[in-house]
Design a protein around this nucleic acid. Structure first.
Lengths: 111, 111
DNA sequence: ATTATTTGCCGTAATTTTACGACATAGTTT
DNA sequence: AAACTATGTCGTAAAATTACGGCAAATAAT
């Protein structure tokens, strides 16, 4: 096939779509929620809270790292993770603006 | 393999993840934006604005219909689509609340 | 030094998503 | 009736996602 025509759309839509994609799995939302509460933790801690294997959790972490939503700091043989508030906040701001823009149409459609 | 462990997570996370998934493609965001502006239009109109084939646009519409984010009304041989403000608004409200909850942690993490 | 812990990397497999063409069908026009 | 328009449905194929297990490497503990 041809594939991935996402690049044909406006940059704003591409970025928001990418952000939403990273939020499109309950495991990743659970990870973000957990990190928001615990401030810092290592991969193992996260694995204990998420009902998935270590490998799969690691994959979801990679997905979140791809957009810099989380930060990781190597500490000996462990890795400490935490939310990247700046990046996450910016994404939230832009994406919520888009959603509110769509949602601002108050009057009901004809159908 | 085993597959789809999304059901192991809290309902709230499942629902928000589902909503984000439906927003995870620029084409679908473009469709929603278009519908918000034009109030009503038929599939053909959308296809002209989206750089994808009619079949693919139809598939994205089906994806949006799955969560009732849009409504379709048959009018002769045409189908008029419009946003389902009620459903869309509820999803936005719940999901934005979740994002704000994660984002509310103002102090920077340790790493 | 040996063992345990923590993580990284690789491979694999099922499932889902993305994308399209081809054909069918139901109205609309002429 | 014939031609056109709008949409639905089916099949297919590539690519991405989801989910694991296995093994290696590096640090920490005994």
């Amino acid at each position: 096939m041809t594939y991935s025509k996402t690049s044909l759309f406006e940059k704003e839509l591409q970025e928001s779509a990418g952000f939403f994609k990273s939020l499109a799995h309950p495991a990743r939302l659970a990870i973000l929620k957990y990190l928001a509460n615990t401030k810092v933790c290592m991969t193992g801690d996260i694995t204990e809270v998420i009902p998935l294997s270590r490998t799969t959790v690691g994959q979801h972490l990679t997905e979140l790292k791809k957009l810099n939503l989380i930060k990781g700091e190597i500490k000996g043989s462990k890795v400490n993770y935490c939310l990247n508030n700046k990046v996450f906040g910016d994404f939230v701001q832009n994406s919520v603006r888009l959603l509110e823009e769509i949602n601002s149409q108050k009057e009901e459609g004809i159908c």
